[in-house]
Design a protein around this nucleic acid. Structure first.
Lengths: 206, 206
DNA sequence: TGGGTGTTTGCGGAAACCCACAATGGTCAA
DNA sequence: TTGACCATTGTGGGTTTCCGCAAACACCCA
């Protein structure tokens, strides 16, 4: 995880890149520029934080396609599209696909900076959420096959006796597993376990 | 709840209304037309199902404003905006505010019908989800003050003994409440209760 | 004033849970 | 082969949950 939230500017036009970088710099927003989609794609991973300013029209690969590729490789950075060609269907599609914003050139400096800051804040939240989810998955991965199997049944509200019957093992064994599960997952009751895992399934609204 | 999913067409231009209604009728999609935002607003409540086709530019009240008012009064119907004036910022804002889609005129018949059908399907899902959430809230409302208080603590994973201590009452009393809570909420364990209530906090992604 | 509801409590017992101590057998890699 | 890890089981006992039966008190409404 790069420790500093950075705005990644991807545009084939050096003048636009410089203008954007200068704008952000003047507001103390760290940024980095990329002259082509390929260049950024070669660098980007799932370990960045900040946001992306993406020109829609670039030679070789459209901003939209770059966006798709980023998502495909797990990069969740919020993307703000910049376009000089007011295209409503494209904007609608981009937003539906999860773009953070879609801005027409010429843009208003203050408005754009606000959007960038909003995107960065949004990413920070997402990042924190993903972090805890990741930690949870790690604890989950520590469980052995058998333990996971039994955890399922615990979460289904089944009694130890029932679980033992279903698996054809002694109740005592279930108790041991149960205890180890609570131990590894760092909870002290089935209720806590259930609440912990409910974080995985559903995510807060965008 | 109106039992039939209806597409509500709001447009001040009779020709547009008729064209849309004819288009939908030809695909067996029930629709209803409204000549002004006020007219629809007077009719709409939170008990409709289907979707709304909304012209952006209308005299008296913009489609956007109507959209806001609908949301303000709890109408969750998915809204598809229709606009003749390609306006990217407006489209972006509308989508961010939760519009279902934003379509430029002239529209493609097939594409529009597809969007309408998607909106209707989306609404059906939301409606079902809201229904179960509502039923849950009703059961929750059946709980007395004391029961809710104790439920909180059960969900915090506390033992009956601890709850009794905190509230300064006998353990037996807590047991009685606990039993009644499970009864009213129609669950058989604290785990089930926890899972049930986790449906309230978080909602699935859009 | 009587009935309904909500909150409270006690007794006693069955069932379930939790745990320390102790132990067996299997797999897999060093 | 040996040690690490996993799954398994037993014993015995303390803790917690769950429940039927019984009852007291407060409050509000008809």
């Amino acid at each position: 995880m790069s420790s500093v939230a950075t705005t990644h500017i991807v545009d084939d036009d050096p003048a636009v890149r410089d203008a954007l970088q200068w704008l952000l710099q003047s507001r103390s927003v760290p940024s980095q520029t990329w002259a082509s989609p390929q260049e950024f794609l070669a660098f980007a991973g799932s370990d960045l934080c900040g946001c992306v300013l993406l020109d829609v029209r670039m030679p070789g690969m459209s901003g939209i396609e770059l966006f798709d590729r980023l998502r495909a490789r797990g990069c969740r950075l919020p993307v703000i599209f910049l376009t000089g060609h007011g295209d409503v269907p494209m904007a609608v599609q981009a937003l539906k696909d999860g773009a953070f914003d879609f801005v027409e050139k010429p843009y208003d400096d203050n408005a754009l900076v606000d959007k960038v800051l909003a995107a960065i804040a949004h990413d920070a939240q997402r990042s924190a959420r993903d972090g805890s989810v990741h930690a949870l998955r790690e604890r989950l991965a520590q469980l052995t096959r058998r333990e996971q199997e039994i955890m399922q049944r615990i979460l289904a509200g089944k009694l130890n006796k029932v679980i033992a019957d279903e698996l054809g093992i002694a109740m005592r064994t279930v108790e041991v597993h149960r205890s180890r599960i609570f131990d590894k997952m760092q909870v002290r009751s089935a209720v806590e376990l259930s609440q912990l895992l409910s974080l995985l399934g559903d995510k807060p609204e965008s």
